[in-house]
Computed example of a mutant assay.
Amino acid sequence: MGDPRSLNAYLRYFLPWNLYRMARLFQGLDINLPDNGIVVDLGAGPLTVAQALWIARPDLREKKLTFINVDRTPKPMREGSRLFTEMAGEKSPWRMVNVKGGSTSKLREKAHLLVTANMVNEASAGTRIPLPVWAEKFCLSMVHKLAPEGRILIIEPGIRRSGRVLSVIRQEFVQAGFPILGPCTHEEECPMNGEKGKAWCHFNFDSDHAPAWLQKLSAECRLEKDNVSLSFLYVGLRKEETERPREGEMLIRAVSESFRLDEGGFGQYGCAAEGQILLSAQGGAKTLYPGGLIGMPIPEEEKRDEKSGALIVPLPIRESDKRKKK
């Protein structure tokens, strides 16, 4: 993004869409930052992370936070700083510190939240090192940048390659003993790892709520979007942070959008410690939003989807669904 034309195009089109998808993610994540907290953004570009966090989390706006934005190209960070000031105002307690460097740069500050967005896929593709070896070095580098209570958030495009890379990184963190806070509900083998034709873990969000001017611009550029997608991995340092299912229950993360089933009703793929799940919504039951979490009793009879091999779990008809049906 050192080229002025490319940077201008990015700021006017790609930045707003990235803000839209990141803000959707930040609204649903458990992000708790202390006063005087440190957020490190590796591959910061035009400070998309800081801007999206400001938009999505008004509960954090009054906290004194320092953002250490790291990128090899300073100009996008300078433009991003100006945009953030226009958005948040001169008196915002959030302080932007822009550092020229890369993901391996040594930083004095330890992060309470360490974020990389749209960086890991490119970095891993640009090396001849086998992916598991690269992932081990990457994870070690990230952990060394964390405060004792810190967390790591990796956000990538919702493409197969990203899903595969994040699955390998996830396995490295699991083997090193770090809890996976999201989207995974477990530390078992990833059933949606993008390997050998398998599905990959990613989330789609409709674009209906994007600003009208952005949708109009996209149409005029012939780059219309019906939805946006992303893959992500959220990692902590303390085991007690992870949510555990109750006895006889499985925790299921809804991954895909809903789709019609041949036998009627709607289905939705999800993930649990038991493997890939097909949530089945029949008789007025409703599927979940992508990313939704639900606890369900472990089925007494194991039924599998013929197409995917996923364990079929019927969704209950909620009281709210009954009222809507009336």
Rank of each mutant, 00 (worst) to 15 (best):
S229W: 09
N69A: 15
K326C: 09
N18A: 04
N36C: 02
A44I: 13
N193W: 03
E156D: 05
P183W: 01
G283N: 14
L288E: 10
L278I: 08
K326A: 09
L60N: 08
R260C: 04
D59C: 09
L53C: 06
E247I: 04
S229R: 07
I55H: 03
D226E: 05
D35A: 12
H186G: 04
W94S: 06
L223H: 12
M142T: 13
G275C: 07
E188R: 15
D59S: 09
P314N: 09
N227R: 07
P179L: 13
P290C: 08
V235Q: 03
K100G: 11
F266L: 13
E302W: 00
L237S: 01
S162W: 15
A88T: 08
A254M: 07
F232G: 14
D71Y: 01
R57V: 11
L60D: 07
K63E: 08
G177E: 08
D321M: 00
C190D: 08
P245Q: 10
R57W: 11
T287L: 05
G264K: 01
M96E: 10
M296Q: 10
S92H: 04
I155P: 04
V168T: 14
K307P: 04
K63T: 03
G2P: 02
G150A: 07
L140S: 15
V174Y: 00
Y10I: 04
V97Q: 11
G264V: 00
L237I: 04
L237T: 01
L114S: 04
K137D: 13
L47K: 07
S229G: 12
G89E: 00
D206R: 09
I277E: 05
N98A: 15
T66F: 07
M142Q: 14
A125G: 09
Q171M: 05
R12V: 13
A272I: 02
V133D: 06
E189I: 08
C139G: 07
T185L: 00
M250I: 15
P76L: 02
N32R: 14
P4C: 04
P290A: 07
Q215G: 06
L146P: 11
K137L: 12
P34E: 04
A310L: 04
P299V: 07
L311N: 05
E220Q: 10
A135Y: 11
F67T: 14
F205W: 09
G101K: 09
Q276E: 11
G37H: 02
P76D: 03
G194T: 07
R318V: 00
